[in-house]
């Protein structure tokens, strides 16, 4: 949590997860389709095929004097150091897991990397909400299989989403935003 020169509270949320898992798609959907959120400009640092090279960024607010600075990371493995930079000072993580069975390893690797970067803070001082994305895939992994894969218990809020259609995205965002605010109020 930080404040700007007008005394407004800023909370930083980061969409994390494996390459092509739907982080940017989910953020773009929030940006384009959710009317109740006030948004600044959408900034994307991406290559010519629209794959994120560094990060996407949008400031959002649900009204009032609290702002969410929402970032996504570049998911490809070689962008590890960029992810570390984007994670600096994050208040909450929205982990976007990919339901395709051929992304099993990518999901675990990405989650392990996140745990390595944030250490004990993850899930304690820095709340996490998990999106199981691409639930429309016919051959998707089961929910239990994915939770098992990531080693998640019942203490982490899980949302099944289809980022392309926006299914579940708003609720997942509300959940992480709520968790982050509550963490600040009752720390």
């Amino acid at each position: 949590m930080r404040k700007d020169d007008q005394g407004r509270i800023h909370l930083k949320l980061v969409f994390y997860g494996p390459s092509l898992g739907g982080k940017t798609t989910a953020l773009r959907w929030l940006y384009g389709k959710v009317e109740g959120l006030q948004k600044g400009e959408f900034t994307a640092i991406e290559d010519e095929t629209n794959r994120t090279l560094f990060f996407d960024y949008v400031p959002m607010s649900a009204g009032g004097r609290v702002l969410f600075d929402v970032f996504t990371v570049a998911g490809q493995k070689r962008h590890k150091h960029q992810r570390k930079v984007v994670l600096q000072g994050t208040d909450g993580i929205l982990f976007v897991a990919d339901s395709s069975p051929d992304q099993r390893e990518e999901n675990t690797e990405s989650f392990e990397e996140l745990k390595m970067f944030l250490g004990d803070d993850l899930g304690r001082n820095i709340p996490i909400v998990v999106m199981l994305n691409k639930r429309d895939l016919p051959n998707r992994m089961s929910r239990d299989e994915m939770l098992d894969l990531l080693g998640l218990g019942s203490n982490v809020p899980i949302y099944e989403t289809i980022a392309l259609q926006g299914v579940g995205v708003k609720r997942a965002f509300q959940a992480i935003a709520r968790e982050v605010i509550l963490k600040r109020m009752y720390k």
Binding site: I9, G36, A62, G64, R65, V66, Q174, R178, I181, M185
Partner: peptide, 16 residues
């Protein structure tokens, strides 16, 4: 003061 801000943000969030 901060708590007020956070509380009202929480309420706004539910209405989104």
């Amino acid at each position: 003061l901060d708590e007020e801000d956070l509380k009202s943000a929480l309420e706004e969030l539910e209405r989104v």
